[in-house]
């Protein structure tokens, strides 16, 4: 019954790609659309979630090696990393710290439980790294993925508005912000702004992820 989960995921993904090509809304995330299709199938047909998840588990396993190939965009943008290492390190640090700080304070204000706050903490970094962080600090990784996807979609669509309101005009700064705040979806948006913004965003996304992982490991060691 393994194949059911795998085939359903492939079909849902193809449909979601088709939809996002037809309806040109840049933030319409294929992860979200495909997940909703599968949830619909599980809800309205006799297919059980458990049966689906058996095959799904095999797909998720590929996420491990997937992080390894993130070295490729890092390498391709090496010259920008060298040239702008100061603003990039500052952007990455402020991105990581402002995200963690705001999640902790807001979760506390909203009275959210600890496990939900821990699942929310890595919401701004790229999903394969976010699930690592979620596991390290004791969150629920399936919730983290949903939060990451929502953050990316929302962040990428309001990013330009945020830049207008706070008068952020520099392309490197915009790219850094989109990568730090909205990971891959933000990077796709940054590519639309300019090549320079896209490169900055891609670096920002990867480095924010790595920094968050290192910080969470250090933090868990101390606590």
């Amino acid at each position: 019954m393994l194949l059911i989960g795998i085939i359903l995921t492939v079909l849902a993904y193809m449909v979601s790609l088709f939809i996002s090509k037809k309806i040109k809304i840049s933030f319409l995330n294929p992860i979200l659309v495909a997940s909703l299709i599968i949830i619909g199938v599980i809800h309205w047909t006799p297919l059980q979630y458990e049966t689906y998840a058996e095959g799904g588990a095999y797909i998720v396993k590929i996420l491990g090696p997937l992080v390894v190939v993130l070295a490729v965009p890092l390498y391709n943008n090496k010259h920008i990393l060298k040239k702008y290492y100061k603003p990039i390190s500052i952007g990455v640090l402020t991105g990581v710290i402002s995200s963690a700080f705001s999640v902790v304070v807001l979760s506390w204000l909203m009275g959210l439980d600890m496990d939900i706050m821990l699942s929310l903490l890595p919401k701004s970094i790229t999903s394969p790294m976010a699930i690592e962080v979620s596991e390290i600090i004791g969150g629920i990784k399936e919730l983290t993925v949903v939060f990451v996807v929502i953050t990316g979609m929302f962040g990428a669509s309001v990013g330009p508005l945020v830049f207008d309101i706070f008068r952020i005009k520099n392309d490197t700064a915009r790219g850094m912000a989109l990568g730090a705040g909205a990971h891959g979806v933000g990077t796709a948006k940054a590519v639309e702004i300019s090549e320079q913004a896209g490169a900055a965003s891609s670096l920002s996304m990867i480095l924010c992820g790595v920094t968050t992982i290192i910080l969470s490991v250090v933090l868990m060691k101390i606590v």
Binding site: K86, P87, I90, G91, T94, G95, S98, S99, S102, V103, L106, S107, M110, G111, L112, D113, I116, L120, K123, S124, F147, I150, T151, F154, G155, V158, G159, V162, F163, I165, F166, I168, K169, N170, T172, A173, R174, M176, A177, L178, A180, G181, A182, S204
Partner: peptide, 28 residues
């Protein structure tokens, strides 16, 4: 708690982009 979660996600995203974008720009 899904409404509360949404508030956290939305406010935090705007905060992160505004702070990191502005600081990088001022630095440049």
């Amino acid at each position: 708690v899904w409404v509360q979660i949404f508030v956290v996600l939305i406010v935090s995203s705007v905060f992160v982009m505004a702070v990191s974008g502005k600081i990088v720009e001022l630095f440049i």
